[in-house]
Nucleic acid binder design. Structure first.
Lengths: 150, 150
DNA sequence: TATTGTTATACTCTATAACTATA
DNA sequence: TATAGTTATAGAGTATAACAATA
């Protein structure tokens, strides 16, 4: 079976939105402290890059700076992150995940992982291997085409 | 390599949001008449199911009826769909994609497919096969867990 | 009473435009 | 002037609550 780029594109276009909806609903519906998917991703990024400036967040998320700023606002308002000045370059901002933020991030990750893993437990190990390899191939192709505002 | 459910879940949780962002940005940025991803999916569903009632749309999309109703409103306002009464069951509604809607749907699909296919042309045929098989496996597992409102 | 759908309201995501402040 | 960030504004997606109409 030789798969053309178009065939694989068609599969992505059908399946990816469905998967995304699963992930989103799960994050919303969990009893645990809920995060939206963009909030989750932002929190995870800043947690891995403590002290990150806003522009790095926007870059990683593929968002314009105002969008990233709003997103961060929401996390700060809910006590998951702080925004400080960076003394050596006062244009920049230092974003830091609080311990509360970290706890919520981990709870959300655990909950979502458990949900997905439960679903994936009904897949054969061979197919799970396929899935992992496919995701890795996709990751390497679709890495971060950012909008220009950034 | 034996892949646990957790490992594959982790990959999905990282890669799927990234892919979704790609698809979304592409649909927005295209010169062609743009559709959001939910609009695209709704239009495609009703196009395949002409005369569909709203509840079927909500069901397919995994949305509550009010959300589906709003989504449909937007498509009607832009002339891509019509909403008529269904004579034999007047609680129900008949949704129909207009020819304009169909044209926009096809243009959007072509544009997005071309974009994804171009990206995927840099992937080996073997990996494209992996991707297709993985998507098929995922599709069979994650088919439609609807919210209850519906 | 149960089903189908809409309206009202609210919150998040995201963008563009316009702005401030720092380098 | 270029960079980093925010505020204002607007439209789309989504949910819940409350409601109307039909079966």
């Amino acid at each position: 079976m030789t798969v053309t780029p178009e065939q694989s594109a068609g599969e992505l276009l059908e399946v990816v939105p469905m998967l995304m909806k699963e992930i989103r609903s799960q994050m919303r519906s969990q009893g645990a402290p809920d995060l939206t998917v963009p909030q989750f991703r932002t929190l995870a990024f800043v947690n891995r890059n403590q002290g990150s400036p806003l522009c790095k967040v926007a870059d990683h998320m593929g968002l314009t700076p105002p969008s990233a700023s709003t997103l961060v606002d929401g996390l700060i308002k809910r006590g998951m992150m702080t925004r400080e000045d960076q003394p050596d370059n006062r244009r920049r901002v230092r974003l830091v995940v609080t311990s509360r933020g970290r706890a919520i991030l981990e709870a959300s990750r655990r909950g979502t992982m458990a949900y997905l893993a439960e679903k994936l437990s009904s897949v054969s190990a061979d197919n799970r291997e396929l899935i992992v390899k496919a995701m890795q191939a996709l990751r390497s192709v679709f890495t971060n085409s950012t909008p220009k505002g950034a």
